[in-house]
Amino acid sequence: MEISALIKKTAAETRSPEDTALVWPNLVYIELISILLATAVLLFLSLVSPAPLEELASADTTPNPTKAPWYFLGLQELLVYFDPWLAGVVLPSMIIVGLIVIPYVDPNPNGKGYYTFSERKFSVLGFTFGLALWYILIVIGVWFRGLDWSWYWPWSDSSIHMSVTAVKLVDLELIIQNMFGLSADPVMTLGRYAPTVSNIITVLLFLGYYAVGFTIPFLLLRNFFNQLGMIRYNLVMFFFLSMCGVPLKMFLRLIFNIKYLLVTPWFKI
Protein backbone atom coordinates (compact mmCIF):
# COMPACT_ATOMS: atom_id res chain seq x y z
CA MET A 1 0.00 0.00 0.00
CA GLU A 2 1.28 3.46 -0.82
CA ILE A 3 2.04 5.81 2.03
CA SER A 4 -0.58 8.34 0.99
CA ALA A 5 -3.24 5.66 0.81
CA LEU A 6 -2.17 4.38 4.22
CA ILE A 7 -2.49 7.85 5.72
CA LYS A 8 -5.91 8.27 4.16
CA LYS A 9 -7.02 4.92 5.50
CA THR A 10 -5.74 5.73 8.98
CA ALA A 11 -7.54 9.05 8.90
CA ALA A 12 -10.77 7.34 7.86
CA GLU A 13 -10.47 4.93 10.75
CA THR A 14 -9.89 7.70 13.26
CA ARG A 15 -13.12 8.24 15.10
CA SER A 16 -14.71 11.44 16.20
CA PRO A 17 -14.12 12.44 19.85
CA GLU A 18 -17.58 11.15 20.83
CA ASP A 19 -16.56 7.59 19.91
CA THR A 20 -13.38 7.75 21.92
CA ALA A 21 -12.53 8.38 25.54
CA LEU A 22 -9.45 9.73 27.24
CA VAL A 23 -7.12 6.99 28.38
CA TRP A 24 -6.49 8.91 31.60
CA PRO A 25 -8.57 8.35 33.66
CA ASN A 26 -10.81 5.82 31.87
CA LEU A 27 -8.37 3.07 30.87
CA VAL A 28 -5.58 3.78 33.35
CA TYR A 29 -7.90 3.23 36.29
CA ILE A 30 -9.26 -0.05 34.89
CA GLU A 31 -5.68 -1.22 34.54
CA LEU A 32 -4.76 -0.10 38.03
CA ILE A 33 -7.73 -1.88 39.60
CA SER A 34 -7.14 -5.11 37.65
CA ILE A 35 -3.47 -5.07 38.66
CA LEU A 36 -4.39 -4.57 42.31
CA LEU A 37 -6.92 -7.39 42.16
CA ALA A 38 -4.41 -9.69 40.46
CA THR A 39 -1.80 -8.88 43.11
CA ALA A 40 -4.31 -9.64 45.85
CA VAL A 41 -5.19 -12.98 44.26
CA LEU A 42 -1.50 -13.89 43.84
CA LEU A 43 -0.76 -12.96 47.46
CA PHE A 44 -3.73 -14.98 48.68
CA LEU A 45 -2.74 -18.03 46.63
CA SER A 46 0.87 -17.72 47.79
CA LEU A 47 -0.24 -17.74 51.41
CA VAL A 48 -2.73 -20.62 51.22
CA SER A 49 -0.88 -22.82 48.72
CA PRO A 50 2.90 -22.71 48.98
CA ALA A 51 5.21 -23.93 46.21
CA PRO A 52 6.04 -27.63 46.59
CA LEU A 53 9.54 -28.90 47.18
CA GLU A 54 10.07 -32.63 47.02
CA GLU A 55 13.09 -34.75 47.80
CA LEU A 56 16.47 -33.80 46.37
CA ALA A 57 16.75 -34.74 42.71
CA SER A 58 18.12 -38.23 42.26
CA ALA A 59 18.60 -40.21 39.09
CA ASP A 60 18.34 -43.45 41.11
CA THR A 61 14.69 -43.23 42.15
CA THR A 62 12.07 -42.55 39.53
CA PRO A 63 8.83 -41.14 40.91
CA ASN A 64 5.69 -42.92 39.78
CA PRO A 65 4.05 -41.40 37.83
CA THR A 66 6.47 -38.79 36.47
CA LYS A 67 4.39 -35.86 35.40
CA ALA A 68 5.38 -32.86 33.32
CA PRO A 69 4.19 -29.39 34.41
CA TRP A 70 0.40 -29.12 34.09
CA TYR A 71 0.49 -27.02 30.91
CA PHE A 72 2.35 -29.84 29.13
CA LEU A 73 0.24 -32.68 30.50
CA GLY A 74 -1.99 -32.64 27.42
CA LEU A 75 1.04 -33.50 25.31
CA GLN A 76 2.19 -36.10 27.84
CA GLU A 77 -1.28 -37.67 27.72
CA LEU A 78 -0.90 -37.90 23.95
CA LEU A 79 2.15 -40.10 24.57
CA VAL A 80 -0.29 -42.89 25.45
CA TYR A 81 -1.62 -42.82 21.92
CA PHE A 82 1.30 -41.58 19.82
CA ASP A 83 5.05 -42.14 19.65
CA PRO A 84 7.18 -39.41 21.22
CA TRP A 85 8.24 -37.90 17.90
CA LEU A 86 4.57 -37.23 17.15
CA ALA A 87 3.21 -36.39 20.61
CA GLY A 88 6.22 -34.41 21.76
CA VAL A 89 7.56 -32.79 18.63
CA VAL A 90 5.48 -32.95 15.47
CA LEU A 91 2.01 -32.36 16.95
CA PRO A 92 3.08 -29.40 19.12
CA SER A 93 4.95 -27.93 16.15
CA MET A 94 1.84 -28.35 14.05
CA ILE A 95 -0.22 -26.60 16.72
CA ILE A 96 2.20 -23.66 16.70
CA VAL A 97 2.41 -23.43 12.92
CA GLY A 98 -1.34 -23.93 12.67
CA LEU A 99 -1.91 -21.02 15.06
CA ILE A 100 0.53 -18.84 13.12
CA VAL A 101 -1.23 -19.36 9.79
CA ILE A 102 -4.71 -18.60 11.18
CA PRO A 103 -4.74 -14.90 10.22
CA TYR A 104 -3.49 -15.70 6.73
CA VAL A 105 -6.04 -18.39 5.92
CA ASP A 106 -9.12 -16.61 7.29
CA PRO A 107 -10.30 -14.27 4.55
CA ASN A 108 -13.68 -13.67 6.23
CA PRO A 109 -13.98 -9.87 6.60
CA ASN A 110 -16.76 -10.24 9.18
CA GLY A 111 -16.18 -10.44 12.89
CA LYS A 112 -13.23 -8.07 13.06
CA GLY A 113 -13.17 -6.42 16.45
CA TYR A 114 -16.33 -7.83 17.97
CA TYR A 115 -17.57 -11.11 19.39
CA THR A 116 -19.57 -13.11 16.94
CA PHE A 117 -20.36 -16.74 16.38
CA SER A 118 -23.10 -16.34 13.77
CA GLU A 119 -20.85 -14.59 11.23
CA ARG A 120 -17.94 -17.03 11.41
CA LYS A 121 -19.26 -20.38 12.56
CA PHE A 122 -16.61 -22.64 11.04
CA SER A 123 -13.60 -20.73 12.38
CA VAL A 124 -15.04 -20.37 15.88
CA LEU A 125 -16.12 -24.01 16.00
CA GLY A 126 -12.78 -25.22 14.67
CA PHE A 127 -10.78 -23.14 17.13
CA THR A 128 -12.90 -23.95 20.17
CA PHE A 129 -12.87 -27.65 19.30
CA GLY A 130 -9.08 -27.61 19.27
CA LEU A 131 -9.08 -25.66 22.52
CA ALA A 132 -11.51 -28.15 24.10
CA LEU A 133 -9.29 -31.03 23.07
CA TRP A 134 -6.23 -29.30 24.55
CA TYR A 135 -7.98 -28.66 27.86
CA ILE A 136 -9.64 -32.08 28.20
CA LEU A 137 -6.28 -33.79 27.69
CA ILE A 138 -4.79 -31.59 30.42
CA VAL A 139 -7.70 -32.43 32.73
CA ILE A 140 -7.07 -36.13 32.11
CA GLY A 141 -3.35 -35.76 32.65
CA VAL A 142 -3.78 -33.84 35.90
CA TRP A 143 -6.66 -35.69 37.56
CA PHE A 144 -7.16 -39.04 35.85
CA ARG A 145 -3.66 -40.44 35.53
CA GLY A 146 -1.98 -42.14 38.45
CA LEU A 147 0.53 -44.89 39.10
CA ASP A 148 2.15 -46.22 35.91
CA TRP A 149 0.21 -43.54 34.03
CA SER A 150 -2.88 -45.76 34.44
CA TRP A 151 -6.38 -44.38 34.34
CA TYR A 152 -7.81 -43.67 37.81
CA TRP A 153 -11.37 -42.45 38.28
CA PRO A 154 -11.85 -40.06 41.19
CA TRP A 155 -13.36 -42.95 43.16
CA SER A 156 -10.55 -45.41 42.41
CA ASP A 157 -7.95 -46.14 45.06
CA SER A 158 -4.95 -44.28 43.72
CA SER A 159 -2.50 -46.06 46.00
CA ILE A 160 -2.77 -49.49 44.37
CA HIS A 161 -1.41 -50.39 40.96
CA MET A 162 -3.98 -51.18 38.31
CA SER A 163 -3.95 -54.71 36.98
CA VAL A 164 -1.12 -55.19 34.53
CA THR A 165 -3.09 -57.60 32.36
CA ALA A 166 -4.07 -54.67 30.18
CA VAL A 167 -5.47 -55.23 26.72
CA LYS A 168 -3.22 -56.47 23.97
CA LEU A 169 -2.62 -53.89 21.28
CA VAL A 170 -2.40 -54.85 17.62
CA ASP A 171 -1.24 -52.96 14.56
CA LEU A 172 -3.85 -52.16 11.95
CA GLU A 173 -1.95 -54.03 9.25
CA LEU A 174 -2.12 -57.27 11.26
CA ILE A 175 -5.86 -56.88 11.73
CA ILE A 176 -6.29 -56.38 7.98
CA GLN A 177 -3.96 -59.28 7.27
CA ASN A 178 -5.90 -61.68 9.50
CA MET A 179 -9.31 -60.40 8.53
CA PHE A 180 -8.78 -60.92 4.79
CA GLY A 181 -6.30 -63.77 5.08
CA LEU A 182 -3.57 -61.85 3.29
CA SER A 183 -0.02 -63.10 2.90
CA ALA A 184 2.60 -62.00 5.41
CA ASP A 185 5.36 -61.98 2.79
CA PRO A 186 6.70 -58.67 1.53
CA VAL A 187 5.70 -57.82 -2.02
CA MET A 188 8.72 -55.63 -2.69
CA THR A 189 11.87 -54.29 -1.06
CA LEU A 190 12.84 -50.64 -1.00
CA GLY A 191 15.97 -50.48 1.12
CA ARG A 192 14.86 -51.23 4.67
CA TYR A 193 11.22 -50.99 3.70
CA ALA A 194 9.70 -54.36 2.76
CA PRO A 195 5.94 -53.85 2.83
CA THR A 196 3.34 -56.61 2.79
CA VAL A 197 0.02 -56.24 0.98
CA SER A 198 -1.73 -55.31 4.21
CA ASN A 199 0.97 -52.72 4.95
CA ILE A 200 0.37 -51.09 1.57
CA ILE A 201 -3.35 -51.06 2.35
CA THR A 202 -2.68 -49.17 5.60
CA VAL A 203 -0.58 -46.63 3.70
CA LEU A 204 -3.44 -46.17 1.23
CA LEU A 205 -5.95 -45.88 4.07
CA PHE A 206 -3.81 -43.22 5.77
CA LEU A 207 -3.39 -41.20 2.60
CA GLY A 208 -7.03 -41.88 1.79
CA TYR A 209 -8.10 -40.16 5.03
CA TYR A 210 -6.50 -36.94 3.82
CA ALA A 211 -7.55 -37.47 0.19
CA VAL A 212 -11.20 -37.98 1.07
CA GLY A 213 -11.06 -35.19 3.62
CA PHE A 214 -9.67 -32.77 1.05
CA THR A 215 -12.12 -33.84 -1.63
CA ILE A 216 -15.47 -33.87 0.15
CA PRO A 217 -15.67 -30.12 0.96
CA PHE A 218 -14.27 -29.40 -2.50
CA LEU A 219 -17.18 -31.28 -4.08
CA LEU A 220 -19.99 -30.44 -1.70
CA LEU A 221 -19.06 -27.03 -0.31
CA ARG A 222 -17.69 -25.32 -3.39
CA ASN A 223 -18.46 -21.92 -1.89
CA PHE A 224 -16.15 -22.66 1.02
CA PHE A 225 -13.41 -23.61 -1.44
CA ASN A 226 -13.94 -20.57 -3.61
CA GLN A 227 -13.82 -18.20 -0.65
CA LEU A 228 -10.48 -19.59 0.46
CA GLY A 229 -8.73 -20.23 -2.84
CA MET A 230 -6.39 -23.09 -3.60
CA ILE A 231 -3.50 -22.41 -1.18
CA ARG A 232 -5.60 -21.33 1.80
CA TYR A 233 -8.01 -24.22 1.30
CA ASN A 234 -5.21 -26.77 1.33
CA LEU A 235 -3.61 -25.26 4.43
CA VAL A 236 -6.91 -25.09 6.31
CA MET A 237 -7.87 -28.63 5.36
CA PHE A 238 -4.44 -30.02 6.22
CA PHE A 239 -4.44 -28.57 9.71
CA PHE A 240 -8.15 -29.25 10.28
CA LEU A 241 -7.90 -32.90 9.20
CA SER A 242 -4.74 -33.41 11.25
CA MET A 243 -6.47 -31.95 14.29
CA CYS A 244 -9.46 -34.27 13.81
CA GLY A 245 -7.06 -37.12 13.21
CA VAL A 246 -5.74 -36.90 16.78
CA PRO A 247 -8.99 -37.88 18.54
CA LEU A 248 -9.76 -40.34 15.72
CA LYS A 249 -6.54 -42.23 16.34
CA MET A 250 -7.26 -42.15 20.07
CA PHE A 251 -10.67 -43.72 19.54
CA LEU A 252 -9.29 -46.39 17.22
CA ARG A 253 -6.84 -47.29 19.93
CA LEU A 254 -9.38 -47.17 22.77
CA ILE A 255 -12.17 -49.09 21.07
CA PHE A 256 -10.37 -51.39 18.62
CA ASN A 257 -7.04 -51.78 20.45
CA ILE A 258 -5.14 -50.57 17.41
CA LYS A 259 -1.58 -49.61 18.30
CA TYR A 260 -0.25 -48.27 15.01
CA LEU A 261 -2.17 -47.29 11.91
CA LEU A 262 0.90 -47.18 9.77
CA VAL A 263 4.21 -48.95 10.29
CA THR A 264 7.42 -48.15 8.44
CA PRO A 265 11.00 -48.95 9.42
CA TRP A 266 11.62 -45.26 10.18
CA PHE A 267 8.48 -44.18 11.96
CA LYS A 268 5.14 -45.47 13.16
CA ILE A 269 1.87 -43.59 13.35
Partner: peptide
Protein backbone atom coordinates in the same frame (compact mmCIF):
# COMPACT_ATOMS: atom_id res chain seq x y z
CA UNK B 1 16.50 -29.40 41.61
CA UNK B 2 14.06 -31.67 43.41
CA UNK B 3 12.52 -34.89 42.14
CA UNK B 4 9.60 -33.01 40.58
CA UNK B 5 12.01 -30.80 38.63
CA UNK B 6 14.42 -33.48 37.51
CA UNK B 7 11.80 -35.89 36.23
CA UNK B 8 9.53 -33.35 34.60
CA UNK B 9 12.49 -32.14 32.59
CA UNK B 10 13.63 -35.69 31.91
CA UNK B 11 10.20 -36.43 30.41
CA UNK B 12 10.45 -33.31 28.29
CA UNK B 13 13.97 -33.96 27.07
CA UNK B 14 13.00 -37.54 26.13
CA UNK B 15 10.69 -35.91 23.62
CA UNK B 16 13.50 -33.77 22.21
CA UNK B 17 15.41 -36.99 21.61
CA UNK B 18 12.56 -38.13 19.36
CA UNK B 19 12.69 -35.10 17.08
CA UNK B 20 12.59 -36.20 13.45
CA UNK B 21 16.02 -35.81 11.80
CA UNK B 22 17.54 -33.94 14.76
CA UNK B 23 17.10 -36.50 17.54
Amino acid sequence: WDQLALWAVTVGSKMAEATPLLG
